[in-house]
Write a protein that binds this DNA or RNA. Sequence first.
RNA 1: CGGGAUGUAGCGCAGCUUGGUAGCGCGCCUCGUUCGGGACGAGGAGGCCGCAGGUUCGAAUCCUGUCAUCCCGACCA
Length: 478
Amino acid sequence: MAKNVQNVEAITNREVDFAKWYTDIVTKAELVDYSSVRGCLNLLPYGYAIWENIQRTFDGWLKETGHENVYLPMFIPESLLQKEKDHVEGFAPEVAWVTHGGSEELTERLCVRPTSETLFCDLYSHIIHSYRDLPKLYNQWCSVVRWEKTTRPFLRTVEFLWQEGHTAHETGEDAEAETIKILHLYADLCENVLAMPVIKGQKTDKERFAGAERTYTIEAMMHDGKALQSGTSHNFGDGFARAFDIQYTDRNNQLQYIHQASWGISTRLIGGIIMTHGDDNGLVLPPRIAPTQVIIVPIAQHKEGVLDAARSLKTRLAAGFRVKLDESDKTPGWKFSEYEMKGVPLRLEIGPKDIESNQAVLARRDTGEKKIVPMDQLEEKIADLLEDIHRNMYEKAKANREAKTFTAKTMEEFEAILAKQTGFIKAMWCGSQECEDFIKEKTTATSRCMPFEQEQISDTCVCCGKPAQKMVYWGKAY
RNA sequence: CGGGAUGUAGCGCAGCUUGGUAGCGCGCCUCGUUCGGGACGAGGAGGCCGCAGGUUCGAAUCCUGUCAUCCCGACCA
């Protein structure tokens, strides 16, 4: 029993201190190492592998939908950054500046990209001349820098990895269609790959991206009831095109401004995976992006034939799954805990008894359930179990969200709900920023989005009582 | 950027009040016995006590400054 207690105490209890639990997992599962650079992370092989899997999946989807990858500089001349007024104002507080090259002071300072709208605009102004050049569906995988004051691994760091898509279109309708299409692709990624249910919707003007006409978002709920903005997609209309003078000649030989969209997801998603699925034994990874899907743990590996059996199983299963065999001389119990901490979806135990009975033991990470499986059915069972683990993780996360989603018709109700627990509140809103500001000040909850799936909670604004425009999801956010 | 806490071996900590040149647990290395939920024994390696000043014969310990990390708020993916 004492041993079990030690397992549980290896990391901070999730219900006791969620924030500490999170940072414990991040380091103990060997996802990251705290860098000597303030606010930055060393992404370790295991953490980076998760990102690579997300990246590989999504990059494939982008290519299937006609997008192309490019790479633009990490520096932006100050004059370029300043061309779009709202945009600079939005990012100015958090940009890092390069002022010197060697010992020479630069005549114009360079900003380290916090996002690359301005560079893409500059590019598009060079290469778009005719409607025949449109659309341009460009994407880049890179890192960006935002001089954040307080940082948390994956959720907010000074430098982070992401993809930023920047597309150019003939019309506003085309740009809007792209914006929505990508939002659905993001939701697909979260739900069908990461097992994270999301709410799709539009940001209010207050929460809109600097320089955008409209911002759409997918919002996920973490285990503790807080919201995580997990991907955003922006329709810029022709605002940037006018600021950067990006014009093309249309079919009628008329000069027109292009219409643009941009969209991004980042390594923040990894933080989302941790906080959505993790438990007191550590990380729980969605099978579709888990760097290792099956960990083989030999039992009594010094005994004749055990390691041979384990190795040949590894070779056999590697044909269909991401498999790892741990032949280190740690005890089996140690390995069990270790790979639970790392969130490996399935553990396969193979020992003398199994070899004798021509079987293996499969243990699933999400439920802890163990099953004895005949050797000749392994591939089939593993495939089924991985599917079922994904489905179960998604359902569990969704059930958590539903249990922590409430409706409020008045501010009294609103506050009473948040006083009891953290969660989403669905409430009607009149559309004024005054009410949004008031709610934030009074409750610290912000508007997460105006969901595509609207409901009529009541007829009047939860805050001011005037006629309501939209149902809004409110919540505390990361 | 405000409020709080913490920096001592790879990790977690003690030592600091009452200054005298550093210790414990885990981990690591070697050997042996073990192995179906974090094994045991024996031996061994490892530290400019975050950094910079100051006080002192002498500083991990006292003083000043600084940097970093964590937590809670304000700002953001």
